[in-house]
Amino acid sequence: MSTHPFDAHLARVAEAGEHAVWTPSDGALPALFLSHGAPPLFEDAGWMAELFTWARSMPRPRAVLIVSAHWEEAPLAISSADAAVTPVYDFGGFDPMYYRMRYDTPAAADLARRVMGALSSENVHETGRGLDHGAWVPLTAMYPEADIPVIQLSLPTGDPAGLLSLGARLRDLREEGVLVIGSGFTTHGLPFLTREVMTGRVEAPGWSRQFDAWAAEALSRGDVDELAAYRSTAPGMPYAHPTVEHFTPLFVTLGASTNPETPRTSTIDGFWWGLSKRSFAAA
């Protein structure tokens, strides 16, 4: 019987050894934007390796704050700060094993208080909600030990300016060893994918490749205005994003960076099921 790719990934993680924990001498952690995939990411050894290698290229964070496309709520809300909260299985049609997977992180009360403090001008409330798949799926590949406190923050708006402002209020957390993540997907036109594309028999559709190339070029120039005008200027719209929640977490990441207009290069690129995996760090 063959080994499941995720089991092989865990074996590679065990061989990697200790991961040095962030200290103040390391300086601020970057903010990340990552394309988060879906449970079948655990069947893609290459993508898991990319995410884990990325995690190991940085000091191990003291905590993670993540904004996911899969939790849109205003006023702002944060997930449960309790330990080992059951994840949200907000997907359908996949192998039953994915509905049994857990990501049992430690209690995150200290992080919750710090986040609430950073957003003191907002009406932020704590919920009993667990982490959705936009959070626990990529984090399971990056930090499979699940021993880092994690809080998820809701996505309160699709307005780029509002999300840049939200990210700016989270910026100081990076100086405390908190990894701030915007989790979405650089393209997400699920209704327009064919079986041939999803099985890799044909290349990613033109609307996905065109939007991805546009985003990469705008990021390489640090052109926040161009990115914010994506609805009207990006090629491939609206196919690349028939709804926008998978692109807008990018603006939280840029807002949390030291300078949103700094040129960016991507850490991960390529396509999965015809969707762009482009992901980057913003120091």
Rank of each mutant, 00 (worst) to 15 (best):
V115N: 05
P106E: 09
D172G: 15
D159S: 11
L153W: 01
V137T: 03
L166Q: 02
G167S: 04
D104C: 11
P144I: 10
L111K: 14
R169H: 07
V150G: 00
D132P: 00
L111C: 13
A161V: 14
G167H: 05
S121Q: 14
L164C: 01
L155K: 08
L131C: 08
Y99N: 04
G117M: 08
D159R: 10
D172V: 13
T157W: 06
E176I: 12
P160K: 04
D132Y: 05
H125W: 03
V150K: 00
G134W: 02
D147Y: 04
G128M: 02
G167C: 02
R113A: 15
P144H: 12
A112W: 07
R100G: 15
L164W: 08
P156Y: 00
T127A: 04
A168R: 14
P156D: 00
A135S: 10
L131V: 04
I148H: 04
L111G: 11
A135C: 03
L170H: 07
T140F: 08
L164T: 03
A168Q: 13
A135E: 01
E145A: 15
T140R: 14
G177N: 13
P106F: 10
I151G: 01
R129I: 01
G162S: 07
L166Y: 03
M142R: 11
G130W: 01
Q152K: 03
D147S: 08
A135F: 02
A107V: 12
A168Y: 07
T127Q: 04
A112V: 08
M101C: 08
R102N: 13
D172L: 12
E175T: 15
I148G: 07
R113T: 14
R169G: 07
D104T: 10
L119N: 04
G167M: 03
P144E: 10
G162L: 07
A168E: 14
I148T: 08
G117D: 15
